[in-house]
């Protein structure tokens, strides 16, 4: 953490964050599971996050890296209030726009326009505010006349563009990005990154999860490395990435040398 950021109030503040999931071996909880509750059910508990502490400050872009299953997406989902933490404290100062999966909140039978209104309201705007922004959103998404067709007819690229366009236009203070900026074509990706840069200059906070290490290096001010639900390292992207890569390499070497 640099000196300049320490005096400001954090937009995201996480203390000793823990999240446990309970997984039942029965595929879908039917009434049978309920009726047989007294039978020892095979419920496994596993802890995805094992006590995280970190802060994010206005204007900062923090990226979270780590292998699959390290708890990155769970962390973002807890910040987006999709999951509730098992214990620990999460303080969020400002409005969050999660980009957990573009287009997931769209209803296939409604038109793009109707979905803009619905999503904008979900993200915290009033219907009046969202109506005022519709022209900008349509322009950014480059959807043109397709905006009046049902989104089930959209390609995945179109869905991604619309989703990003809505999220970036709702005046959020914090953007949670889960591996989604690399959709769309090259030109659109550049446009997204430009817009994200502007968002940051205006004091917005970005927390992103990515396996694209080049993007991490290019965009983030700080990098957090998660491994098995714990923070291994936090600091300048160059340092953390170097450590992460050498760890990956040694893990791979170990795997190949292990006899069957």
């Amino acid at each position: 953490m640099t000196e300049a950021t320490t005096n400001r109030t954090p937009t995201i503040s996480v203390r000793n964050l823990r999240k446990k999931f309970r997984v039942s071996n029965a595929a879908i909880g039917g009434l049978k599971t309920l009726l047989l509750w007294w039978k020892k059910r095979s419920v496994r508990e596993f802890e995805v996050l094992k006590g995280l502490d970190f802060d994010c400050y206005p204007g900062e872009c923090v990226s979270v890296i780590g292998r699959n299953g390290a708890g990155k997406s769970t962390l973002l989902a807890i910040l987006a209030r999709v999951y509730r933490q098992t214990s620990g404290e999460v303080k969020v100062n400002g409005r969050i726009a999660p980009l957990l999966e573009l287009g997931a909140g769209f209803h296939p039978d409604l038109t793009g326009m109707e979905n803009i209104i619905f999503n904008g309201v979900v993200l915290g705007l009033s219907r009046k505010q969202i109506r005022e922004r519709i022209p900008q959103i349509i322009e950014f998404s480059e959807l043109g006349d397709s905006i009046n067709s049902p989104v089930r007819s959209y390609s995945s690229g179109m869905l991604a563009r619309l989703g990003f366009a809505v999220a970036i236009h709702v005046d959020a203070d914090i953007l949670l990005v889960d591996e989604v900026l690399s959709v769309g074509d090259y030109a659109f990706e550049q446009k997204c990154y430009d817009r994200v840069d502007r968002f940051r200059k205006e004091g917005g906070t970005i927390l992103m999860v990515s396996h694209n290490l080049q993007a991490v290096e290019r965009f983030s001010d700080r990098c957090v490395w998660l491994k098995d639900g714990q923070m291994v390292m936090s600091g300048l992207p160059d340092d953390v990435l170097a450590a992460y890569l050498s760890d990956q390499a040694s893990a791979q070497a170990e795997e190949t040398s292990t006899p069957d």
Partner: peptide, 9 residues
């Protein structure tokens, strides 16, 4: 469920 897995309300 797909919607509420992505966003809070």
């Amino acid at each position: 469920v797909p919607l509420i897995k992505k966003i809070y309300f």
